[in-house]
């Protein structure tokens, strides 16, 4: 190292800086992770408990935050049956296991992550494509149990393959989708037009 080289060009300075910067960022990330995880556990501030599937879910504009947010409404049990917290968790868990083992994420997106061959599932429960609130559950079950026969391709000819889902499997997936629609996703997807539901203003 020649004597006229500026201090900031030395290997030693940058080695120390690399170590300190990395350590500092890692520590900040750990602190933020504790806070974030506490808010996104089921039943936390931003992610409702699984028994929320017993209630109606709306997606409404929040003027203060400037985007749409899920709003939990009155009682509206899924498939007409009120579930305990434990039963609801078991049903959603079964649904999530199915979503993973059927590899849904390599065609669809969940919370916007996955593949782009089929629509996003984040607000699938609230999608107007299910015709009307009164028939939504049945239409969803029919579609999931026989996606070829009840194909909804909207002119693309892309059909969901038959995934050997029983009616119970379909109900579990629907429970998972209903629960997922209640997550506060900071307004994603934007400008979404939900299905018309009882109690809409």
């Amino acid at each position: 190292m020649s004597s006229n080289a500026p201090w900031w060009s030395s290997e030693d300075v940058w080695r120390k800086l690399a170590i300190w910067v990395t350590a500092a960022m890692a520590v900040i990330l750990v602190f933020l992770t504790f806070d974030t995880v506490s808010q996104i556990v089921a039943g936390g501030e931003r992610v409702p408990g699984y028994d929320v599937i017993n209630q109606r879910v709306y997606y409404r504009h929040d003027d203060e935050r400037g985007f749409q947010v899920p709003v939990i409404g009155d009682e509206a049990p899924l498939f007409g049956e009120i579930l305990t917290a434990t039963e609801a968790e078991a049903l959603v868990t079964h649904g999530k296991l199915l979503v993973q083992s059927k590899n849904c994420m390599n065609c669809h997106t969940l919370l916007g992550n996955g593949a782009y061959y089929a629509p996003d599932l984040t607000k699938a429960w609230l999608d107007p494509g299910w015709a009307a609130e009164s028939v939504r559950e049945q239409v969803m079950v029919s579609f999931l149990t026989d996606p070829g026969g009840n194909a909804r391709t909207y002119g693309t000819n892309r059909r969901m393959p038959n995934l050997d889902l029983s009616e119970d499997d379909a109900r579990a997936i629907i429970a998972f989708l209903k629960w997922m629609s209640t997550i506060d996703t900071n307004g994603f997807p934007a400008g979404f037009t939900p299905i018309r539901q009882e109690g809409d203003q």
């Binding site: 060009s9 030395s10 290997e11 940058w14 080695r15 800086l17 690399a18 910067v21 990395t22 960022m25 890692a26 900040i28 990330l29 933020l32 806070d35 974030t36 808010q39 996104i40 931003r46 992610v47 919370l111 916007g112 992550n113 997550i183 506060d184 996703t185 900071n186 994603f188």
Partner: peptide, 30 residues
């Protein structure tokens, strides 16, 4: 080697908390 340290400082300096750009829409805080 000096360049490598510079890159490490910049890469981890931006990339570790850059993780946050995946946390906009998945339920994580604002």
């Amino acid at each position: 080697t000096t360049w490598l340290y510079i890159e490490v400082a910049l890469m981890f300096g931006s990339g570790i908390l850059g993780l946050g750009h995946h946390y906009f829409w998945i339920g994580t805080p604002e």
